[in-house]
Amino acid sequence: MTDWENWLRSAAKRPSDHETSKRDRTEREIRDALANYEPLRGKPYRVYAKGSYVNNTNVRLNFDVDIAVEYYGYFYYDLDFELKGQDKSVVGIVDSEDPYTREEFKADINAALQHAFGRNAISEGDIAYRVRENRTTLPADVVPCWEYRRYDAINICHVGSRVYPTSGGYKDNYPAIQLQNGRAKTRATNRRYKRMVRALKKLQTVLAEADLIDHEIPSYLVECIVYNVPNAEFNHSTYLADMKSVLAFVFNGTLSGGGSPDWHEVHELRYLFRGSDWDRTAVHALSDAAWEYIGFE
Score class of each variant (00 low, 15 high):
R9T: 05
S10G: 01
K13L: 00
K13D: 00
E19G: 00
T20A: 08
K22A: 06
R25T: 07
T26G: 09
E27W: 15
R28P: 05
R28A: 08
E29M: 03
E29V: 06
L34H: 10
L34S: 06
A35M: 14
N36C: 04
N36L: 06
L40F: 04
V47M: 08
Y48I: 01
A49T: 05
K50Q: 07
N55Y: 02
T57Y: 05
V65N: 13
D66W: 11
I67Y: 06
A68F: 05
V69M: 15
V69Y: 08
G73Y: 07
Y77E: 09
D78K: 11
Q86H: 03
K88Y: 06
S89A: 11
V94Q: 11
D95S: 11
S96N: 15
E97Y: 14
R102G: 06
E103L: 03
E103F: 02
E104D: 09
F105G: 09
K106Q: 01
D108H: 14
I109A: 10
Q114L: 13
A116Q: 15
F117N: 09
N120V: 04
A121P: 07
I122A: 14
I122Y: 08
S123A: 02
D126V: 10
I127H: 15
Y129I: 00
N134G: 03
N134I: 03
N134S: 05
R135A: 12
T137P: 10
L138M: 10
A140F: 09
V143C: 12
E147K: 11
Y148T: 03
R149P: 03
R150Q: 07
Y151I: 06
A153Y: 12
I156F: 06
Y164I: 09
P165L: 07
T166I: 14
S167P: 04
Y170G: 08
Y170C: 12
D172Q: 14
N173P: 07
A176G: 08
Q180G: 04
R187A: 13
R191V: 02
Y193T: 01
R198H: 00
K202P: 00
Q204S: 06
E209P: 01
D211H: 06
L212F: 05
L212I: 11
D214Y: 13
E216Q: 12
E216H: 02
P218A: 10
S219A: 15
L221K: 12
V222H: 12
E223Q: 13
I225K: 10
Y227M: 03
N228D: 09
N228C: 09
E233D: 13
H236S: 14
L240Q: 08
K244E: 12
F249E: 07
F251P: 04
F251K: 13
F251Y: 15
T254C: 15
T254K: 11
G259Q: 15
S260I: 03
H267A: 15
E268P: 07
L269T: 04
D277G: 10
W278M: 02
T281V: 06
T281G: 04
A282F: 08
E292Q: 07
I294D: 13
G295K: 01
F296C: 07
